[in-house]
Amino acid sequence: MSNPQARTYPRNNWYVAATAAEVTDKPLGRQICGERMVFYRAQEGRIAAVEDFCPHRGAPLSLGRVCEGKLVCGYHGLEMGCDGKTIAMPGQRVRGFPAIKSYAVQERYGFIWVWPGEQQLADADLIPVLKWHGDPEWAYGGGLFHIKADYRLMIDNLMDLTHETYVHASSIGQAEIDETPCKTETRGDEEVITSRFMHDIPAPPFWKMALRSNGLADDVNVDRWQICRFTPPSHVMIEVGVAHAGKGGYEADDAHKVYSVVVDFITPETDGSMWYFWGMARKFNPGDAAVTDLIREGQHKIFSEDLEMLELQQRNLADHPERQLLKLNIDAGGVQSRRIIERLVAQEEEAPLRQAAVA
């Protein structure tokens, strides 16, 4: 487990641990915020999560099985309850077995959400609302990457989209992104927003494909927008789209635009690795599964390019920890997002000290 004095992520927050489809009839082991957890479906399919550690011999419970809603260790058959207490073990008395850690966990919007910190503080109402989920006017497709890089590098990457001009030149990048200034707003510790609006420009290849898929001309200039919203601990939602130029831009009627939300749930695995749940929710031509597949394939290619860049960036930073990096205007969204994360971590670390002082 990471050194708690040096950790870079708050624990008392909801993180996406898996997609709902990943947790079926078998347990799923995954490391989240430096802690090894196992996710499984208990009675009636209810999601549960406990420490991936059998109290008998320390075997990973994720290598076991689920039988009648109980998690069974694959080493000696110990049965574990959702609360982390041992239920039974063949031929053994287990009343004195120590409990292992259990986690607050929720299944919502097609994702499994986990709260790595103090269970008593977990409030399901704090899970972000995904308004597009289940709405027939929207369609969603996505995927998952394991990336060997600090999760904050992905937040930096998503809160500054000028890199698209260079990293994604063949799909969504274009010079106008560099040429158009972005605006950054911070709303306390709740949200950071960077926005960029481009007017009367050519559509890049990805958006030409999107226009065609919605029955719109792709050979005319467009107004394009990018609105990146960071919310703690590490979620980034990006409103993106294009409208035929002169039709109202972001506010244009649906008949003249294609509009999507890029979904980014960035979950730290360790200080130097992450789980990256990516996808796109679109509000155009939602019933066409072929379009969903095409967009998913396009996103996979785009995010694969990010993956390579971030992993090599992480390597350079690890090799040169003493180097001070430049901070430019385009970095404002990532800088402000990191400051919120730092404040949340500091608050968690100070809380036990305050409690001790009161006692």
Rank of each mutant, 00 (worst) to 15 (best):
Q5E: 12
Q5P: 08
Y9G: 11
P10G: 06
P10L: 14
R11A: 14
R11P: 11
Y15A: 03
E22W: 07
D25L: 12
L28R: 14
R30P: 04
Q31R: 15
R36F: 12
E44I: 09
G45H: 10
V50P: 04
E51M: 15
D52Y: 02
H56C: 10
R57L: 14
P60I: 12
S62I: 11
L71N: 08
C73Q: 03
G77L: 12
T86E: 00
I87T: 05
I87F: 10
A88E: 07
M89S: 09
Q92M: 15
V94K: 03
F97A: 15
A99I: 15
A104Y: 08
G110A: 10
G110Q: 01
F111A: 07
F111N: 05
I112C: 05
V114C: 03
G117W: 07
E118M: 14
E118R: 07
E118H: 06
A124Q: 08
L130I: 11
K131F: 12
H133D: 12
P136K: 09
A139F: 00
A139R: 01
G142R: 03
G142Q: 05
G143D: 01
F145R: 02
F145P: 00
I147T: 08
K148E: 04
D150P: 07
Y151C: 09
M154N: 02
M159A: 08
M159I: 08
T162Q: 01
T162K: 03
T165F: 13
H168K: 10
H168S: 06
S170P: 13
S170G: 15
S171A: 14
I172G: 11
A175P: 04
E179S: 09
K183F: 14
V192M: 06
S195L: 07
S195E: 08
P202Q: 01
F206P: 02
W207M: 05
K208A: 02
A210T: 00
S213Q: 07
A217S: 15
V220D: 03
D223A: 09
R229W: 03
F230I: 01
P232W: 04
P232Y: 00
S234F: 11
V236N: 02
I238H: 04
H244E: 03
A252Y: 00
D253Y: 06
H256V: 07
H256D: 04
H256M: 08
T270R: 07
G272I: 04
S273E: 09
S273L: 15
W278K: 03
M280L: 12
R282G: 01
L294A: 06
G298A: 03
Q299G: 02
H300S: 02
F303Y: 09
L310E: 00
E311P: 07
N316F: 13
L317P: 00
L317A: 08
A318G: 05
D319W: 13
H320L: 13
R323D: 06
K327H: 10
K327R: 12
N329D: 08
I330Q: 04
G333D: 05
G334F: 12
S337I: 02
R338P: 00
I341E: 11
E342Y: 05
V345N: 01
V345G: 10
A346T: 10
Q347N: 11
A357P: 05
A359F: 13
